[in-house]
């Protein structure tokens, strides 16, 4: 880059150092390293046999033991979506802002985009795909959402539903305000919060009936 032209064209008063700082602050080119999908190319970089054996882990997902090849830095969302084919778990942001990737880990709702897969080894992972019974009966929370005609675009729905499941198990009799608090880690861009709250209240009612 021609420093003199830069200075003339953009700002007459700044130094190259400041410009570089500005560009670094912007970080436009590859701003979200943690969001990247890491796949088979890692093989090129690692001593193959030893590396790949060390990467095989067993995950308990939706009641099944799944053997999967996981890199140390891989997030649970990426493993679920790209290694286990569980695409119901969505990615809506670069990291921990929207809750679309919410799954249950030992019954607690977690952002799977911000949890390393390796830290979920030995724990019970439940995704949206794991809520239905084997005979296709919907989970009471899913049924409540259907009965209320819940969600619009529904990209946030799997995450919200997982948070609702965690809520009704922890607090079977929540107030509307407690429900809003419990779901406040999930974002709905359609702004369908009223229907989401009503669905969650109905979900709690269904869950109480089943209990």
């Amino acid at each position: 880059m021609n420093e003199i032209e830069l200075l003339e064209a953009v700002q007459r008063t700044v130094s190259r150092r400041m410009f570089i700082k500005g560009v670094i602050a912007a970080g436009a080119a590859t701003s979200s390293v943690g969001y990247l999908f890491r796949g088979p190319a890692a093989v090129f970089a690692l001593p193959s046999i030893q590396g790949s054996v060390g990467r095989l882990v067993t995950l308990n997902v939706n009641g099944q033991q799944r053997r999967v090849d996981v890199l140390p830095q891989e997030t649970l969302a990426m493993t679920l979506r790209y290694k286990l084919g569980l695409t119901g778990t969505k990615l809506g942001c670069d990291r921990a802002e929207c809750g679309a990737c919410t799954v249950l880990v030992d019954g607690t709702n977690h952002y799977s985009c911000s949890m390393l897969t390796r830290s979920a080894v030995g724990r019970e992972i439940t995704t949206i795909e794991g809520l239905e019974s084997e005979d296709g009966t919907l989970h009471p929370v899913q049924q409540a959402v259907v009965d209320e005609g819940g969600f619009q675009c529904a990209f946030c729905a799997p995450g919200f539903i997982m948070s609702m499941v965690a809520l009704v198990e922890a607090n079977p009799n929540p107030t509307r305000e407690e429900t809003a608090q419990a779901l406040s880690g999930n974002l709905c861009r359609c702004g369908d919060y009223d229907k989401i709250l009503t669905s969650a209240m109905r979900a709690a009612e269904y869950a109480r009936r089943e209990a």
């Binding site: 569980l86 119901g88 809520l131 259907v146 969600f151 729905a157």
Partner: peptide, 12 residues
């Protein structure tokens, strides 16, 4: 309820 709602709540 719209016919696609079950697919939306099951992740399908």
């Amino acid at each position: 309820a719209p016919p696609d709602l079950v697919a939306k709540v099951t992740g399908r």
